[in-house]
Design a protein around this nucleic acid. Structure first.
Lengths: 358, 358
DNA sequence: CTGAAAGCGCTTACAG
DNA sequence: CTGAAAGCGCTTACAG
């Protein structure tokens, strides 16, 4: 069933059918009604592929993240999906597992499919081919991670400032030997948070001891292993700054496994404030990002490029906020006080940060 | 840049360029090399939209779930994405928030985009339009939820049997007053699990008391509210069977808020075994589904329809398995024993159930 | 082995 | 207000 079939059944030209399909103003009401009736009757749906070919627009945007099962990315992806839909577009989502090869494959597929723009949440700090794409005028915005290239739009959080704020908090609590489970330095998130950690120590006149810094790929399991290593150190650290919430959860697991109490024997902080960081039984102290909102903002920037043909670069840098829960003291980590009853709970109105509940 | 540009630059016809692009066997090596060089030199990428138009194939499949930020669906989606990619296809993912209107909109968009097939994880028990689509021969498979229609492929878990098994377990632990936080009855998952709950009671000669059954939309927050209601009941239930893990987490939250100890004062079971059910601080006893695997299986069924032109229906019903952790006794729910050291841990080899870690 | 040409299902100047 | 026709960028019988 095509526009041509509808046309012949109605005794009009394909141009007319096309016009009623696209709600052109000057079609005779009688013809319009006749065509609309027929379209409804046979359940005709115009072929979007053909339409895209002539319009040179697919109304589709490509979204690339590291891993959709990571709650941080699923929340970003949801912000993107909702806002993309609000603009009348569709998004196609891809998970790279932080494999550069996989990222490249997905990018190529997306380009062949002629997406109108790209939102990338998976880039490394050095990514010359991707930067070149953007410089050639392809609509693109980076989210969460960014790279050094002054001509690409981005929406990120100030990871360096966040890390420094977190360290300040731990030091304020009396911690002097703070370990760091850092993310990969090839990502701006891992790099900037690590720099924040290091500079915080230096600012206090301390030389960062490399033995107290271990690495993981932002995954929970990595932090389990990393934490076991940290526990062998003497003197033992009294606090762990994990590179993200997932790794903080892994640290909690390893600490519990070793029989340590949290926060009495060890303080733990994360980064991101994914939703489950606030769950009962976890109650992680962490730096909060407005994750869902970042996804939406990325779409807004992209749409300015696509529809308003903006050419100047825009970079949005959000400030994260410290959310104090139970994993550093002040509150027992479990035993279950409700969120609202925590005197040390952040002043943030979380309802504003999360997506509206359906 | 099009195939035509490449052709004229190389002094060949577009047919030849098309043939080298599609790796046809009988192209003269010299020509092939010349064309390939030029393609590489200018960085040409063929237009997939045009290709799809003539081939009447987009190599894209539509995936509709209730909510990608729900870890159950993000794991299914990941299974789907990985397997779809293995088949050389792309998937486009949509979240309906369980809104029938949203589901319909997405379905229409997907059909206009001419996806080659559909995997639906969001359907209600009654869904005549969707069933009609399938009956008209459109390639489709239901995953997780299904509806009554003998001609649609599906991969689901045996929710009824799972619920009965869970109840058996609770009864075996000595519980006699078991409450249920059920999911919406319009979804097969909510419906079948509720039936299992009800029939288990009846099988013991008990009349299910409707006051001990409350509803939620499979969301954590819903269960917080529902559990508060259950706690007002006298006599108070001694166990709660939550319709899924997310709602079990909400129950844990509300119980902790009320100052109850788990499992000493109340046993809690969930359903699904999402990854975080096993995290430290949660350690939920639950019915385990092979979530990631279900996504992969759904793709395999779909590909049989699309590529092998299978016409007979195939329905895969998986058996869930009980995973005993800390939320019903046997183990403290927190205080952190590692998974491996739990004597009551399931015999399942979890590594087989989860996706491989990159 | 290679090319000219038709055709996939639309949109949109251009004429009338 | 309406229609004939060109064209979007490919693929693929069909001839040679």
């Amino acid at each position: 069933m095509t526009i041509k079939d509808i046309a012949s059944r109605c005794g009009v030209s394909v141009a007319t059918v096309s016009r009623v399909l696209n709600r052109f103003p000057h079609v005779h009401p009688a013809l319009r009604a006749r065509v609309e009736r027929e379209i409804r009757r046979v359940g005709f749906r115009p072929n979007g592929v053909a339409r895209s070919l002539v319009l040179k627009k697919t109304r589709t945007i490509g979204v690339v993240v590291a891993d959709i099962t990571n709650p941080f990315y699923s929340e970003i992806a949801r912000g993107i999906e909702d806002q993309v839909r609000a603009h009348g577009y569709t998004s196609v989502l891809c998970s790279t597992d932080n494999l550069p090869k996989r990222q490249l494959e997905y990018l190529q597929t997306l380009l062949e499919k002629r997406v109108d723009g790209l939102i990338l949440g998976s880039v490394r700090r050095r990514e010359p081919e991707v930067a070149a794409l953007a410089h050639n005028g392809f609509a693109m915005v980076l989210v969460n991670r960014s790279f050094r290239s002054p001509h690409v739009d981005s929406v990120v959080v100030d990871n360096y400032a966040g890390a420094r704020r977190l360290m300040e908090y731990l030091v304020g609590l009396g911690h002097r030997l703070i370990a760091h489970i850092r993310g990969p330095l090839q990502f701006s998130t891992g790099y900037d948070r690590y720099r924040g950690y290091r500079d915080s120590l230096r600012a206090r006149g301390l030389t960062p001891d490399p033995r107290y810094v271990v690495s993981g790929a932002f995954r929970r399991e990595d932090a389990v292993v990393a934490t076991r290593r940290l526990l062998e150190l003497r003197p033992r650290p009294t606090a762990i700054f994990a590179g993200n919430d997932l790794m903080a959860l892994g640290a909690l697991e390893a600490l519990a496994e070793a029989g340590l109490r949290i926060p009495a024997d060890m303080a733990v902080v994360g980064f991101d404030d994914v939703e489950l960081a606030s769950y009962w039984g976890i109650r992680l102290t962490t730096m909060s990002q407005r994750i869902y909102e970042m996804g939406r903002l990325a779409v807004d920037l992209l749409m300015e490029r696509i529809e308003k043909r903006r050419r100047e670069r825009r970079a949005i840098i959000l400030q994260p906020e410290l959310v104090i829960r139970g994993s550093c003291g002040g509150q027992p980590i479990s035993g279950g006080l409700g969120q609202g009853s925590l005197p040390l709970e952040t002043h943030l109105d979380r309802a504003q940060l999360r997506r509206p509940q359906g």
